[in-house]
Amino acid sequence: MPTVELLFSALPEHVRTARLVAAAVARRAGVDEAVLDEVRLAVGEACSRAVGLYRSSGADRPVRVVLTEEEKKFSIEVGDKSPEAEDRPADAASVPSARGDSPAEHSEPLPDGSPSSSDSSEAEDEGQMGLAVISGLVDDVEVFSGEYGDVIRMSWPLNPAALS
């Protein structure tokens, strides 16, 4: 059972609320203070991405954020999980590798395109950059396929000694 579960309408103005809740629950769970900024940012990225995907696909679904305090880690899942996704292993191909190996390769900050590129292509760039930020920040990330798009699961160790 999750420690805290949050459902919000897929609107940009609610992403900040999700960040605040996630940071508060993470702090209470014992996530190191130094890491809370990363938790806040990663959750914001995952929620922004979900909001963008749901809106562009016209899915009238809330964004689901599940915050779970486990024995040795704190995990956050963002997205809407379909029943079959439960059995499916992580889609390793769709998640950029974790921090360490040249993070810049995951993002193309200045893709070829005219300076007057449309807002939609900028939005796509932002979606890609969101994943790049998450993969650069969080060591333990999995992306599952869900019925309404990806489910991103991230976790952080709770044992301060493991953080160094």
Partner: peptide
């Protein structure tokens, strides 16, 4: 966040 980065990159373009 990355949305802000995207806006700055857009401004740079």
């Amino acid at each position: 966040d990355s949305t802000g980065l995207g806006v700055l990159v857009g401004g740079l373009k």
